[in-house]
């Protein structure tokens, strides 16, 4: 894992906090790409991943059910219920499945920002360790 300093991250405005349902996700359009944004109200935490489920390449993760597996936040794809960690994007139900790209999320008042590493196309795996 590599640590990416905040200067290398380009933060874009995604939506208002009130646009996102509690304990669920929405899909954000960023340029020609799609990012799934999730809000866990009990722990007041935000996560963002690619919207594409790598299993059958469907744009569906934002519509998936969220939850935890032994404390680790996860989302289940609506198609075949493969689940992915929202912390590091790895697939929790199939160790051979590809991982999701995860993105850092930042709040300013009621505005939600998602961080894209500058110079890196959305969808290309980048692991972010420290935010």
């Amino acid at each position: 894992m590599s640590t990416i300093s905040s200067t290398a991250i380009n933060w874009f405005f995604a939506c208002k906090t009130t646009d996102v349902p509690h304990n669920g996700g929405v899909c954000i359009k960023y340029k020609d790409e799609q990012i799934a944004l999730f809000y866990f109200s009990r722990s007041d935490t935000w996560y963002a991943t690619q919207n594409l489920c790598p299993h059958r390449r469907q744009m569906a993760l934002s519509r998936g059910m969220t939850g935890t597996h032994q404390g680790e936040p996860k989302v289940a794809c609506p198609f075949h219920k493969k689940t992915f960690s929202l912390k590091d994007g790895r697939c929790l139900t199939d160790e051979h499945e590809c991982s999701l790209t995860v993105y850092p999320v930042r709040l300013e008042d009621d505005r939600v920002y998602i961080g894209i590493q500058s110079g890196v196309e959305v969808g290309v795996p980048v692991t972010v360790e420290a935010l």
Binding site: N23, S43, G64, M65, G67, T68, G71
Partner: peptide, 10 residues
Amino acid sequence: HGEGCEICKP
């Protein structure tokens, strides 16, 4: 306890 999941929510 916890946050629930795709099994208990439905």
